[in-house]
């Protein structure tokens, strides 16, 4: 599965009216918020906060979907659904996978922003 689905990013660009500057702002905003969510996930692991873990997974699931980070979205969807009823045994494992996947997305999106191919 690809780290980044560029067609989804194109759709997003179309949705917001095609402004590249605005798109880049939006991507940067996503990366900042995603880092916050990851730190929330770490906190929830320490405090065994099921609700915080579930909400974090939910947020990251939907925003990563918007930016074409399909794998990251899938991982978060899996974590979210495992949080439905009780604390999942594999929570820490999930979070580590999500953090790894995000690092790749972070790199890919930064390349997308600075890549000459995407300007214009």
């Amino acid at each position: 599965m690809a780290i980044l689905d560029l067609r989804v990013i194109d759709q997003l660009k179309e949705l917001i009216g095609g402004d590249v500057e605005e798109l880049h702002e939006l991507i940067k905003l996503f990366l900042v918020e995603a880092k916050d969510i990851l730190s929330d996930m770490d906190t929830s692991l320490e405090t065994q906060d099921l609700e915080l873990l579930r909400r974090s997974a939910h947020s990251l699931k939907s925003s990563s979907q918007d930016f074409g980070a399909t794998r990251l979205s899938e991982l978060n969807a899996a974590l979210e659904s495992s949080c439905r009823n009780h604390w999942p045994e594999s929570a820490a494992n999930h979070v580590v996978k999500i953090a790894d996947s995000f690092k790749q997305v972070d790199v890919a999106l930064n390349e997308y922003i600075s890549g000459p191919v995407n300007h214009g």
């Binding site: 997003l12 949705l15 917001i16 402004d19 702002e25 939006l26 905003l29 918020e33 947020s59 939907s62």
Partner: peptide, 12 residues
Amino acid sequence: DKEVHRKKMSLA
């Protein structure tokens, strides 16, 4: 509650 969602929606 997420700024990225608010911004995306406003732009759309």
